[in-house]
Design a binder for these strands. Structure first.
Lengths: 342, 342
DNA sequence: CTGAAAGCGCTTACAG
DNA sequence: CTGAAAGCGCTTACAG
């Protein structure tokens, strides 16, 4: 019954079977053009297509149309738990309208970013979602110059003129601070994320602003180079060596917070008894940890799907100019924060 | 300086610049064929390519060669923490040799699996890695019939004749059981994964075999429909309602174990004081949970990269026949298991 | 070592 | 409503 290496069935096979020209088959099978073809022919073509097990060669169609119905996604690292939900949001939204998504990990290295983008351009992607933006980012600038439809997610760049889906950092940081202040904390430290990222930078800035508004110290800050557990650990030790006059820490994200907790454990400090700590992002399973980390929930899946919607609109020319979509985060209070001990 | 909507530079642009035929350019730029071209011409072509910012149109090349240098990956759900490391292993290995990977979530639904595979075939993928296998799987059968190079990862099918990278379940389960037996547990329950998956099925079978070898009860089993926290919770309650004579549980994977722990917490049972529990997979952050879950570490990243290596060999015709690569897991003892209380 | 031609499977003006 | 032709950007026998 089944031949070895069966040749793929093409539009021409259908044309032969129905006895029309293959261009007619192409039209009959196209949702936009099938109304140019008589209903009877359409029906016959559809039947033949089904019978032969036809499915379109997207590669051929891409080449001709110079669009691929694929979008690219650049993330630092899939194994960082913030990203899977974002990507799932992207995939679900893109696939719902027949788009394929290609993701690449850049490990925050500019070279990998460039390579990934090259590859994606070689595959004629119709647009790209970038979660790896640095505040001034030559790769993104290049995308803009090359007119690749583009939306940033989570992080953004300093210049505007580009679509981005980000978090209302002011709201998020203020929620944490108000929470800590209500717990009588007056010396609040900040383990800041990398300052070349908008998230690291803005959270730190907003922190300082609000501390000043409350007339609290704003100099208990340690800056990290990466949003990782190890960097959080390192920064905590450094901060503590410099000044131990704080009772609470606002970490730039959850991984940094976990690193701080590791460092505290090592030297016998208790959370929250000695020091309260909060994270940012609300990655999976935080509620099961010991102690369960208080954090700012970032709507990851929704950011992914919103970014995709915007990108798809750009691709179809329906997007009305670049802008920033600012999503609302939400404070999630768990038991890593408690009343200040002194 | 920069024109709006610049036309992409093609092989013909280079040909014009160097003043050779575009087929010569194609050969000069091809690693395999550039030795058919005089070194001077190769050099000139390369220079021109660089100058013009040329990068190949993979879509066109795919269409002609009927291969795409892309592979597909089918997983149930990116947000399940087992999969990111597997995928990262796949991506790193594939990208190192110039391949692109396209992943799709199937949510364990056959229809989505079919759709995803269709899409991938439409994109002329050169092969596919499947992490969603059921023991008898019509979709996989279809792939085999269609001669799509294929390797299964993590789960496999009952029939052989297909490449698969799996875990040595016998070794893994035995390690857990020996550990629990050494802690004086004699009534050991099993929260089994779905029996239509090879992992769920084999772990349960191996469990029963080894319990019998030790002359222990092997009837304390509750089967789940999905590898999820919620199913673990449900199964635990059901098991407990039926028979409470156990002091330890071997869960079919980590998520099921977490579900059991949730259920225990709800009714005031302590882990490990009242009941010891172990998981399987060793997903991220287990060591930070309370209690930290004892589990069987599955080398996820390595499984991904091995599966990819095998697939790439199949694609290039270097694979010597189908076979099962069985990876060694490793018991990780944490504090969810302790000496039996009675 | 290089060129000219054909073709991969589609889509789309252009006719009629 | 349908057909014939051209072409998307490559690759690759076939010549020479």
């Amino acid at each position: 019954m089944q031949r070895k290496t069966r040749r793929k069935v093409t539009i021409r096979d259908i044309a032969d079977l129905v006895d029309v020209h293959h261009s007619t088959v192409s039209r009959a099978l196209s949702p936009e053009k099938c109304d140019q073809i008589s209903p009877e022919v359409v029906k016959k073509v559809e039947k033949a297509a089904k019978k032969l097990g036809y499915y379109p060669n997207i590669v051929a169609s891409s080449l001709k149309q110079n669009r691929s119905f694929a979008i690219g996604v650049l993330i630092p690292d899939l194994m960082n738990p913030v990203f899977p939900p974002i990507i799932r949001g992207i995939q679900d939204t893109a696939e719902a309208v027949g788009y394929t998504v290609i993701t690449a990990n850049t490990d925050d290295e500019e070279a990998k970013e460039r390579d990934a983008l090259r590859m994606m351009q070689g595959r004629s992607i119709d647009g790209v979602i970038i979660a790896t933006a640095r505040r001034t980012d030559p790769v993104i600038k290049e995308c803009i110059d090359n007119d690749i439809p583009l939306v940033l997610v989570n992080r953004t760049i300093d210049h505007d003129g580009v679509n981005a889906v980000v978090i209302d950092e002011d709201f998020g940081i203020r929620a944490v601070l108000d929470h800590l202040i209500s717990l009588k904390h007056t010396n609040i430290a900040h383990i800041a994320g990398p300052q070349h990222t908008s998230t690291g930078y803005h959270r730190a800035r907003v922190m300082a602003d609000h501390l000043r508004v409350h007339s609290l110290r704003s100099d208990l800050v340690e800056i990290t180079e990466k949003f990782t557990v190890e960097e959080g650990r390192r920064a905590f030790r450094k901060l503590l060596a410099r000044d131990n006059g704080f009772t609470a820490i606002v970490a730039g994200n959850d991984l940094l917070a976990l690193g701080c907790m590791d460092a505290m454990k090592e030297i016998g400090l208790l959370v929250p008894e000695n020091i309260s700590i909060s994270g940012y992002d609300d990655i999976q399973f935080l509620e099961r940890m010991s102690p369960a980390l208080t954090t700012v929930l970032v709507p990851k899946y929704e950011m992914g799907s919103q970014a995709t919607r915007i990108l798809l609109d750009m691709i179809s020319g329906e997007n009305n100019g670049p802008g920033e979509l600012r999503m609302q985060p939400r404070l999630v209070i768990r038991n890593s924060t408690a009343v200040a001990y002194k």
